[in-house]
Design a protein around this nucleic acid. Structure first.
Length: 258
DNA sequence: AATGAGTACAACCGCAAACAT
DNA sequence: AATGTTTGCGGTTGTACTCAT
């Protein structure tokens, strides 16, 4: 259905947030709680916060919310992002749910600025040892963009809203164990040959075929986390029938919902 | 020191699903 | 059931900053 952009809303501020605006928003959320963002611009405006609801939500979710992790990504986080991206594509929100304290926007930006580029260079060095790097930075940037587009798996369904922690057999403890069991991967095995991507069938296909494609070793095939991600993916594809159940359980099951 | 190119990241937008009436 | 509104998502843009020339 779409909606008017914030820019069309008369009298509202745009651009970078000031410390005062942050304080006003924090104060508002502390008093009224999260959600109802459309009402924020009306209620908080009385206190001087002239931002549209969408802008408030974005600011809160990505930067002001308690528990947001600031600073550099750890090698373990890098590894996890790369592997999840191979599995899930550009589903940043799903990836973000696996990295406590990180947001989809942050991961997306980090990927575009660092990880995607790193994988590109890695792939280039593996496939083209002889050619010296003579390209300009512009050319590198162009290649980077093209590779990202290649990586966006066209066979994956469009994202739908699903809360992955709520899926059958899923629990925070399992997640933690699985995450702890992961070892750094991207230096040796994370680069897949995009030309060999196997299209997923309409009912979801076999994601283990994709895992094969990623040159994962046996230990990764049977890794608890990938079993779980696989389950999540299956559920994702059946999302419409799961919506009601997941919504019912969300508030009591999500360990990150505080 | 000036300036142009490249980089990083916060913020915005369009779209579509979910929700409310 | 139909329609309008809100929310969440991923893609894209704007701009401040850094660095090379």
């Amino acid at each position: 259905m779409g909606r008017a952009p914030c820019s069309s809303m008369v009298g509202l501020e745009r651009g970078p947030w000031t410390a005062e605006e942050d304080a006003l928003l924090i104060n508002y959320v502390q008093q009224h709680g999260e959600g109802n963002w459309s009402k924020v611009s009306k209620k908080a405006a009385r206190g001087g916060l002239l931002r549209c609801g969408r802008s408030c939500r974005l600011r809160w979710v990505n930067y002001l919310r308690p528990g947001i992790k600031q600073g550099n990504f750890s090698p373990e986080e890098d590894d996890l992002i790369i592997r999840l991206h191979k599995l899930l594509g550009n589903r940043w929100s799903l990836i973000a749910k696996r990295l406590e304290g990180r947001t989809d926007n942050e991961i997306k930006n980090y990927w575009n600025a660092h990880l995607g580029k790193r994988l590109l260079l890695q792939k280039t060095s593996e496939t083209d040892h002889s050619k010296p790097s003579t390209g300009s930075k512009n050319k590198e940037k162009q290649q980077h963009t093209e590779t990202n587009q290649d990586n966006a798996n066209p066979y994956l369904q469009k994202p739908t809203r699903v809360f992955p922690f709520l899926l059958p057999g899923s629990s925070a403890n399992d997640d933690t164990k699985a995450l702890n069991s992961l070892t750094p991967l991207w230096s040796d095995h994370a680069v897949a040959d995009e030309e060999e991507h196997i299209p997923l069938s309409e009912n979801g296909g076999d994601i283990y075929a994709c895992l094969d494609d990623l040159s994962f070793t046996e230990e990764y095939h049977h890794n608890t986390m990938f079993d779980q991600v696989y389950m999540e993916y299956q559920e994702l594809l059946k999302s419409s029938e799961n919506q009601v159940r997941t919504q019912e359980n969300y508030s009591t099951s999500n360990p990150f919902l505080t």
